[in-house]
Amino acid sequence: MGEAPAQATGNPVASNVELRINARFDAAHLRNSPPPYPQASRRRGEEGLVILRVRVGANGRANEIEIAESSGHERLDRAARSAVANWRFEPARDGEHAIESWVRVPVAFRLERS
């Protein structure tokens, strides 16, 4: 009679693969406060979305911040950059090791209408 089919044990391919996980800023335990709305911008009705490009160190701190996309208002861009400079991040991981990486951080400024 024929031989029984071979049975795989484990997954040898997956066991050698290290997972890379991107840096994060949105985890609730990080307690990152939104930037304060600049009063001059509030009075002038300035709104916008700032996209920051942040180099996050293995220690979870912002090592470098660039404006990837401006809100169109310098005050809002500065406020976003200043706030994110003090944020904590979950650093990227290569397997179990924290590594430096870049992450895009959107910061929205919207006035409430009553």
Rank of each mutant, 00 (worst) to 15 (best):
95 G>T: 12
95 G>H: 06
109 F>L: 10
47 E>Y: 00
99 I>P: 02
77 D>W: 01
99 I>V: 15
107 V>S: 07
26 D>N: 15
17 V>N: 08
3 E>M: 09
103 V>L: 07
84 V>Y: 11
72 G>N: 05
33 S>V: 11
77 D>V: 12
78 R>V: 06
44 R>L: 09
98 A>E: 03
9 T>F: 15
13 V>A: 14
77 D>S: 10
14 A>G: 10
79 A>H: 02
21 I>G: 11
25 F>P: 03
29 H>G: 11
35 P>I: 12
73 H>F: 13
75 R>K: 14
6 A>S: 14
36 P>K: 00
104 R>S: 14
62 A>R: 02
64 E>T: 11
106 P>E: 02
113 R>T: 11
23 A>I: 01
69 E>R: 15
21 I>R: 13
56 V>P: 00
7 Q>C: 12
81 R>C: 03
45 G>C: 01
80 A>Q: 07
49 L>G: 00
111 L>S: 01
44 R>Q: 02
68 A>I: 04
93 R>L: 14
88 R>E: 13
19 L>M: 12
42 R>H: 10
85 A>E: 02
70 S>T: 03
88 R>C: 12
55 R>D: 09
96 E>H: 08
80 A>T: 07
41 S>I: 00
23 A>W: 03
60 G>N: 06
34 P>D: 05
105 V>S: 05
